[in-house]
Each structure stands twice: as C-alpha cells, then as structure tokens.
C-alpha cells in the first residue's frame, strides 16, 4: 500500500516536471525541471530497490550530462531571428507524427510484454555468491550483457574521438 502511494506520487511528479520541461519558455528553467525530473526518477529506482542505479542516475544524468546542457543553454544564444516565428505551426505535423510513433511503441511494448513475459534471466545471486546491488549489476553487465556493454563503450569512444576531432580542427 505504502509502496503504491509512493510510486504513484513519484510518477505524478515525474510527469508533472516532464510537462514543465517542454512547456517552460525559459530554456534554463526548462533544464532545471529536467534535473528535478531525473532526481524523481532516481527516487523511483530507490523505491524499486535499485540504489546503485539511482546513484548512477543522479551522478551521470543530473550531475554530469545536464550540467553540459546547462552550459550550452546558458552560453549559446537561443533567441532566434523573427523569421523563425513566421509560421508557428509549421512543425506541428512533425510533432504529431513523433508523438504517434512513441505511443505506438509504448502500446507495442505493453501488449508484447503482457503476451509473452520476458524470459527469466539468471539471477546473479544464484550463480555467483554476490551480495548487494552493485555486485549484481556488475555481474550481469559482464556476463549476460557483455556484448551490448562493450558495444556501448565502443560507441562512446567513437563519439569522444569524433568530438575531439571536431573541436580541434587542426591536429
């Protein structure tokens, strides 16, 4: 019961701040709401017993990535020339299309998820004498999800090299 209340409460705030993120005019405020949103998502993780994930969520998203967003938003002038506002509705169709595709996706996941429950993964604790959240996550990352994990790290490396090449025009 208590958990359900906490879950719905947190979800409400997550959605509320998500709406504020897209509806606020001031971009800096919007980024701040995004941070709040991330913090509430982290709280949700705690509720689900995934403290490690919660801490990482705060560290990486709230403390790292969004700081860089904030940098960009603060420093780059986002005021656009008046021509850009000539047709305020010209992107409406695109927006609707995107929203529809997201909805479709969510629906698909929901139906697929109900129809065939995900195959039970080996719990780390059964195979390996681990205790606690961190070990479990680490164990899973380096066994069941080794290849996606390595691919992700390769991707990040490529992105980093790309960023350096772009920023440093003459090497």
């Amino acid at each position: 019961m208590g958990q359900a209340i906490a879950f719905y409460g947190l979800s409400f705030f997550i959605l509320f701040f998500a709406v504020l993120v897209v509806s606020t005019k001031d971009t800096v405020h919007s980024v701040l709401f995004l941070v709040l949103d991330f913090l509430f998502v982290a709280a949700l993780y705690v509720l689900l017993g995934a403290q490690f994930l919660a801490a990482i969520q705060v560290l990486v998203y709230a403390g790292g990535i969004v700081v860089l967003y904030l940098f960009v938003v603060m420093l780059v002038n986002l005021k656009r020339p008046p021509e850009a506002y000539e047709d305020p509705h010209r992107r409406t169709n695109l927006g609707f299309a995107l929203a529809a595709s997201v909805l479709l996706e969510v629906g698909a996941i929901a139906t697929y998820g109900y129809a065939s429950p995900a195959p039970a993964l080996a719990r780390a604790s059964e195979v390996f004498p681990v205790s606690g959240n961190t070990e479990e996550v680490g164990w899973l990352l380096y066994t069941s999800y080794l290849i996606p994990f390595e691919i992700a790290s390769m991707l990040l490396l490529v992105a980093m090299i790309g960023a350096i090449v772009l920023a440093k025009r003459e090497l």
């Binding site: 941070v35 913090l39 403290q51 490690f52 801490a55 990482i56 705060v58 560290l59 709230a62 403390g63 790292g64 606690g132 959240n133 961190t134």
Partner: peptide
C-alpha cells in the same frame, strides 16, 4: 550499500 557512490552523486549535484 552504495554509500560512496551516494556521496559522489550527491556532491555532483
């Protein structure tokens, strides 16, 4: 369980 990580992440905010 994740005490140190908690400190790092809170400090990063």
């Amino acid at each position: 369980n994740v005490g140190l990580l908690y400190i790092v992440s809170v400090a990063s905010v």
